[in-house]
Design a protein around this nucleic acid. Structure first.
Lengths: 336, 336
DNA sequence: CACCTGCTTGCACCCGGTAGCAAGACTTTT
DNA sequence: AAAAGTCTTGCTACCGGGTGCAAGCAGGTG
């Protein structure tokens, strides 16, 4: 590793010497609310500006036991939805004086590794951003009890004492089903991606429950291999191939927009069917491309900003740390 | 800020007391290659395991003047291409024992702020990942000369002494033009996004140059407002509306896949034209959705892995720090 | 003018490691 | 058995700040 010892940063001690005060006075000048005369502060600031001094946050963190760094764990970079969330997360955390340490959870660097690492780096909090974190992981004996506080973002928390911030799936699916019912659809289908995820299962469950309330019990269940346009296309292809036109669903809700876009392309391109006339499509996440006129996909937007604000509130301690469920927003377009 | 003082991490001194040695012996047990007997090491490790000790990287960083943290600046989260790059960056950096500090450059947190912050945090390097960083910024008098080493990723470096790692645009455009010429296209068009970016201009320039070499001098230039499917659609819509069918281009190269997808949808959906029969389309970046059967977009893939490896090589010092241009890969599909 | 009060300032010590020296223990050589 | 050499171990000093206490100094009061 190339070290940075070529040009050393100036220290409080050096500024002190230049300003003719002690290093503690320099530190006070940089500590809001500490007792120091205007005169000394001015002299210190002048010397600091001349020497290009700024406090070393590493040393401060060591002394104060607070790094103002938040580790964000991500284990699936395939979902384009991660990007706007990362944007909001970094932006809001930076506004709160915090900074993001982005950790890629993968086969070579699992949750236990990552947690130990985050702990060694003394992060103030860990955000599990949609990662498949299981309870057992925490039971790992290598993990002591001094771990940094953890929060789950955009996924249910599987872990006792770890709060989650999620979009209200019940409300979302109720709104969606209400809308579809109102539009006259009666033969609904649901396409899932990973059926092992609780968040995914919950959406499907609400979908079937609310249709049941409306007297519709038959829900066609499709499943895609993974969350990709190709998988969505394959899944709907398989379904349409084996189902006679009269038997087909009149509306297909896909677990997220990527699946929906893939399905839509397949329905129109390969089968020559019209959306929404032959089959209506609904997605989830309001992914940008879905808004273009070619797709005009009806979807549901998670309250990104509010979710991020909520999690930050808990991290900085202005809000009590407990699971929060926030309402999102239905985006009705031409695909339904 | 909620502090972590509830459960303090155990320190080397505490382990030392438990193991009946001095704290320096404990540290040696955790420092590969230092002189320590098997016996002492075993005792230390036992005590450490019992007390759940691991070295505090903050303190280590302070003492060694090396944090093994790399700041990554991103200023445009709209480009979906960022996500796979972030995945590769985090993965490879973690494999090299480094960790990513993700900084969002925006109106409230500009390059100067971010650099000062990164410097205060003592990062080992700064990666300007496709950000619009200009030379003048560095001239800011607040920026001293002890700044961390900087590297530009996926964009030309505008700054003296700051190396860049980029995809070879000349080679890429040559391959693309060769391919199109061979396929028999003779009336090419080029759609740009932001015309202010040197990287963008360069692609366009090579495109026109190589066509000129083949005796084709007339290049239709379209321009989109920004890099979005909608903007691509709008741009191509405007072009097709004002151009008689006989006058139209037979192939349109778009500066990136997002523009290409938007353009393709518009060409097919709104104008009822066929791709590639009426107009062929080429993109850039090999964005996942372009590979789906509905689009089957011919495009060009940047050598993500190699680019990231190259930049890491420079950061850790195994490679000399100088601008590197790497060859990408042409992906020929059905849109040409 | 002595005394009290309150704000400034300097100081010793601390955060949890690292570097390099020197003393101690143990081994090998003569 | 003494001298020389090697490996271990502890120690001092240091990285660059933060904390709480006590001394220094000003102004106001009796």
């Amino acid at each position: 590793m190339r070290k940075r010892d070529t040009v050393r940063r100036t220290t409080a001690k050096e500024v002190a010497a230049a300003a003719g005060v002690s290093k503690w006075t320099v530190i006070r000048a940089f500590t809001p609310g500490s007792s120091i005369t205007e005169e000394s502060k001015r002299r210190v600031m002048e010397a600091a500006a001349a020497l290009n001094y700024s406090p070393n946050l590493l040393a401060r963190s060591l002394a104060t036991n607070s790094t103002r760094q938040v580790a964000v764990f991500v284990d699936d970079f395939r979902n384009p939805q991660k990007l706007p969330f990362l944007e909001t997360l970094t932006e809001r955390l930076q506004a709160a004086g915090l900074v993001v340490m982005l950790i890629n959870i993968n086969n070579h660097f699992d949750h236990v590794h990552a947690l130990l690492h985050a702990d060694q780096r003394q992060v103030d909090a860990v955000i599990l951003f949609g990662t498949a974190f299981r309870d057992e992981t925490l039971a790992d004996r290598k993990l002591g009890h001094g771990m940094p506080p953890m929060f789950v973002l955009a996924r249910d928390s599987q872990i006792e004492g770890v709060p989650a911030v999620v979009c209200d799936a019940e409300l979302a699916l109720r709104e969606i089903v209400d809308h579809l019912h109102e539009k006259g659809y009666r033969r609904p289908g649901f396409m899932s991606g990973a059926t092992a995820l609780s968040t995914a299962l919950r959406r499907r469950q609400h979908f079937t429950d609310f249709w049941a309330e409306k007297g519709v019990d038959k829900i066609e269940l499709l499943s895609a291999e993974k969350y990709s346009a190709e998988a969505g296309a394959t899944s709907v292809h398989e379904y349409l191939s084996r189902t006679a036109p009269a038997e087909r669903v009149d509306v297909l809700m896909c677990e997220n927009d990527i699946l929906a876009l893939g399905a839509m392309d397949e329905i129109r391109g390969k089968f020559g069917l019209r959306v929404p006339e032959d089959i209506a499509i609904v997605g989830f996440d309001n992914y940008e491309l879905g808004g273009s006129s070619a797709y005009s996909l009806t979807t549901y937007e998670q309250p990104r900003f509010e979710m991020v604000e909520a999690i930050i509130g808990m991290i900085v301690g202005t809000t009590e740390a407990e699971t929060v469920t926030l309402p999102g927003k239905m985006i009705i377009r031409n695909s339904t």
